[in-house]
């Protein structure tokens, strides 16, 4: 059975079209990621799937239950972590957890095995008020609270936004652990590097899904190599390369730029010489496999051209 299924979901806020027809399926025990920038429609989509918002058009179901008609049943079997930290800041870690356990008519003890790996990180601080926890610890607590009733499907809206790199890694390894428990996970993130940690991802932009596939398949379909170029000034590299005749696209990527030539057989040395002429020093050019982010930029570009 499909854990989540959506067909042509649409949602408008007045004149603003947040979702313009979203369709996808999530299999049981899958980690399904929505990757997209702020404002792509991720939160609206999650709120529809968690029965908090009504779609203007289209259907969606969770574990075979309709999100509009069967909302009461769905609320018993899903876990939800909203994008904003939504626990009681004036309650301690332990009080929050036991409150949410009681809401689902269960106890911390009976499902402790499920949250043990996550909760053990914050258990030493269980007397501390939730409002005084660090960002990473808050999210671990929120995850524990969302899991305490052993949901079939877990929805997490940007769980790693605003927390440090180490906590983010820990968080994802916890999700892998939950997968083993048979819990399907639907997660959204604005961080492209987290895409490779999902079983499948959907690239979301302006209320439409650009592509849905496994991370590897997505990077394969682009069919182009990417050049990672660095020199002393990223800014100058950007300016010069975008003025270069054989340039197809160029994006800044950390301390480097990712460059795609219009002609895949373009000689590497030609570009290097061009950059040397422009007084770049310490030039390094490396041909790499495209990342999900490269694909995202490429798909966005194609999507924009289609519209024209």
């Amino acid at each position: 059975m499909l854990s989540v299924s959506a067909h042509e979901l649409k949602k408008n806020y007045g004149a603003v079209k947040a979702l313009k027809g979203i369709s996808f399926d999530v299999s049981e025990g899958e980690i399904f990621g929505f990757i997209g920038p702020d404002g792509a429609g991720k939160s609206s989509l999650f709120r529809i799937l968690t029965t908090l918002l009504l779609p203007d058009a289209g259907q969606a179901s969770v574990c075979g239950l309709d999100v509009v008609k069967d909302y009461k049943k769905i609320r018993k079997i899903i876990g939800y972590m909203p994008g904003k930290f939504s626990l009681y800041q004036d309650l301690s870690v332990e009080e929050n957890l036991s409150f949410f356990a009681s809401v689902f008519e269960t106890t911390i003890e009976s499902n402790y095995h499920l949250i043990k790996e996550i909760y053990s990180h914050i258990e030493p601080f269980k007397k501390r008020r939730a409002g005084q926890l660090s960002g990473g610890m808050k999210q671990k607590l929120a995850l524990s609270c969302a899991l305490i009733h052993k949901p079939n499907v877990l929805f997490m809206d940007e769980p790693t936004t605003g927390i440090d790199a180490v906590s983010r890694k820990e968080f994802w390894s916890m999700l892998k652990g939950l997968k083993k428990e048979g819990i399907s996970i639907v997660v959204s993130t604005p961080y492209m590097d987290e895409a490779s940690l999902c079983d499948r991802v959907a690239l979301l932009q302006d209320g439409i899904i650009l592509k849905t596939d496994t991370p590897n398949a997505i990077t394969d379909t682009i069919g182009k190599k990417v050049w990672a170029i660095s020199s002393e000034s990223v800014y100058k590299l950007m300016c010069d390369l975008s003025g270069y005749g054989g340039c197809y696209s160029v994006y800044p990527f950390g301390q480097m730029v990712h460059y795609m030539p219009a002609d895949q057989s373009e000689e590497l040395t030609l570009v290097e010489n061009f950059l040397k002429e422009r007084n770049h020093r310490n030039i390094s050019i490396e041909i790499i496999e495209p990342t999900v982010e490269d694909c995202f930029m490429e798909l966005m570009r194609i999507n924009k051209e289609d519209k024209r």
Partner: peptide
């Protein structure tokens, strides 16, 4: 206002 209602609504309560 604090968003906790969102979590309460997505519960069997």
């Amino acid at each position: 206002e604090t968003g906790t209602m969102e979590v309460l609504l997505v519960s069997p309560l």
